[in-house]
Write a protein that binds this DNA or RNA. Structure first.
Length: 542
RNA sequence: GCGCCCAUAGCUCAACAGGAUAGAGCAUCAGCCUUCUAAGCUGAGGGUUAGUGGUUCGAGUCCACUUGGGCGUACCA
């Protein structure tokens, strides 16, 4: 529908050149009496042309050369909206189209041929994924899905650091727990990793090696085993919510391949860094940022900025057209430095899209739980998945805009899990499967012959909703707003449930019944496609 | 102090690039199953969109200030 209108405007703009001068909107009005589509073009133009908007609207309409078998009428309303009313028998054509496209309905080729990298989760292997990481994981995976739907070739990447102080502390935490198991009196520092999983790893080492590791240093087998076990758990957790990475990028490889050193040399060469107080500083003030920052500490160890820049250079070298980074809001101060550095080195940072999502606030018994891996004060993603299932977890993290702080009341989530909106969507899908089973028994065959019998209000509403899907996918992907898919699916499901209640299939006249079955199948395809973007299953029975 | 994000119904949140009467779910109340899944549908109540100004045909949306929250503000990542 929208496509037709856009073409109509393009054609008309050959006569009325001013149509090209404004960025107008074609939208679906909230109220049915305002038509199927509406545009504000005349009002936008009135400012530019200094003419009455209604007059302009008149002029535009009189220049339209539209197909009267598609558009019923065009009206001017309110302060100068132009409202389009489509012919009732135009809408059902979408059913035929969807049944033909099937799993591809909603996909677009707009960005085909382009490559994108989505980096997400990127949690260091110091402990299990928490509910907080869960939001990052699900948003990242869904954004990647969305970009795939609009044509990108996608790679999913997990960046991690298995060196540095935190990993040493991790290794030593395991070592101390191990010694504890051997019956040695130890003192476990408060700022060490307090979680149970440390004890479990220590137990495994003891079972395997007895007391032979007594004099090993923390950086050796203790750290290695901790990293290995923790990573295995993280991957298992990701699998259980259907996330699969293409690459795991180890920060350490940047050192091994000399990327850090060559970056340092290059920065010095370009006069972008200098030495002061025994440390190396990045000259960010020269790049428009507030203050210079240290990139190599006086101890000789780099800060995160240096490897982060080097890491992003490898992304550029790998030739992506788009690089998406997804961070929690605690990182919001770090990425401008990295981007500034990259820009100074001549990279086009417009290709980097940094997404920041707000935190999940966990409420337990009405109290806010402060999450800390170090203090073992967290709820793991695994616990949540076991409690409510992967579909609910995924849907819960995706249903809200990532800019909003998300409150998560644990008791409520467990108690009311039956009332989660995700079931509403899945129920609509399952209901359709059930209809298809029943109608088959009645010898009713889906037919495309009499689609223009679909004339009731609910049927027309449902058809219009089906029309919207590809545009919702596109907008949602281009703006990195996966929650819009969830909102759309809820509307679609609501419209379908209404249709289900009002429009019987079995018992209706045969031609009508068979047209309705086709409409139900089309709806089911769109539900399934939408749910697959969200990574949520579409059950045939509930 | 400074930077980023947020404030919408009792609660959790929507509202497409500024559009017409701000919408869902939960909770509350009242209805609808001898017929395709009641995990559903219909209806009711519930709002000065935190506040004050401004921009314009038009503001929840943009700007300024105020109030209240989150996250940062390291030679941690």
């Amino acid at each position: 529908m929208k496509k037709y209108l856009i073409e109509l405007f393009q054609k008309t703009s050959e006569q009325l050149v001013y149509l090209n001068e404004v960025d107008f909107i074609l939208s679906i009005p909230a109220q049915k009496s305002h038509g199927d589509y509406s545009t504000n073009v005349a009002m936008l133009l009135s400012k530019k042309l200094k003419r009455n908007p209604k007059e302009i609207a008149e002029e535009i309409i009189s220049n339209f050369d539209y197909d009267k078998s598609i558009i019923e009428k065009i009206e001017i309303a309110g302060p100068g909206f132009i409202n389009f009313f489509f012919k009732k028998n135009y809408l059902p054509s979408i059913v035929k189209y969807i049944l033909n496209e099937k799993d591809d309905y909603g996909k677009s080729k707009k960005y085909s041929g382009k490559k994108a990298l989505v980096e997400f989760i990127s949690a260091n292997p110091t402990g299990p994924l928490t509910v907080g990481h869960g939001r990052n994981a699900v948003i990242g995976d869904t954004v990647a899905n969305l970009l795939e739907w609009i044509g990108y070739k996608i790679e999913r990447e997990y960046y991690f650091n298995n060196a540095g102080r935190q990993m040493r502390v991790l290794g030593d935490s395991v070592r101390l727990r191990y010694l504890e198991l051997l019956g040695e009196g130890i003192e476990f520092p408060e700022d060490y990793y307090q979680g149970e999983y440390i004890k479990e790893i220590a137990q495994k080492l003891r079972d395997e090696f007895g007391d032979s590791l007594k004099n090993e240093n923390p950086d050796g087998i203790f750290k290695q085993r901790a990293e290995k076990e923790i990573f295995e758990d993280i991957i298992k957790t990701m699998q259980s919510i259907k996330i699969k990475m293409n690459n795991f990028f180890n920060e350490h490889s940047l050192y091994e391949e000399g990327k850090i050193k060559s970056l340092l040399d290059k920065l010095a060469e370009l006069n972008l860094s200098y030495e002061k107080d025994n440390a190396v500083w990045l000259k960010l003030t020269a790049l428009g940022n507030d203050q210079d920052k240290v990139i190599v500490k006086s101890s000789g160890e780099p800060t995160y900025r240096l490897p982060d820049i080097a890491y992003h250079i490898t992304k550029f070298e790998r030739g992506y057209d788009l690089m998406v980074d997804l961070f929690g809001s605690d990182h919001n101060a770090t990425y401008p430095d990295v981007l500034a550095g990259l820009r100074a080195l001549g990279y086009d940072t417009n290709k980097v899209k940094v997404l920041i999502h707000q935190f999940v606030t966990i409420l337990q018994k009405g109290e806010v739980v402060k999450m800390s891996t170090r203090k073992a004060n967290y709820i793991t993603l695994d616990e949540l998945i076991n409690e409510v299932g992967p579909d609910v977890v995924r849907y819960f993290f995706i249903m809200r805009s990532m800019t909003s702080h998300l409150n998560f009341d644990l008791e409520l989530a467990k108690k009311h899990s039956d009332e989660n909106p995700v079931f509403y969507l899945q129920y609509a899908h399952a209901r359709i499967s059930s209809i298809l089973r029943m109608t088959k028994d009645e010898n009713l065959i889906p037919s495309l012959e009499n689609l223009d019998l679909l004339t009731t209000d609910v049927e027309q509403d449902l058809l219009k909703k089906l029309f919207e899907f590809p545009e919702v996918v596109l907008i949602s992907a281009e703006n990195y707003e996966p929650h819009k898919i969830a909102n759309y699916l809820e509307e679609l499901a609501a419209t379908f449930h209404k249709f289900y209640t009002e429009c019987r299939i079995i018992g209706s006249e045969k031609n009508l019944a068979e047209a309705r079955i086709s409409l139900a199948i089309a709806t089911q395809i769109v539900l399934r496609n939408g749910l697959s973007i969200l990574g949520v299953s579409a059950p045939n029975k509930m």
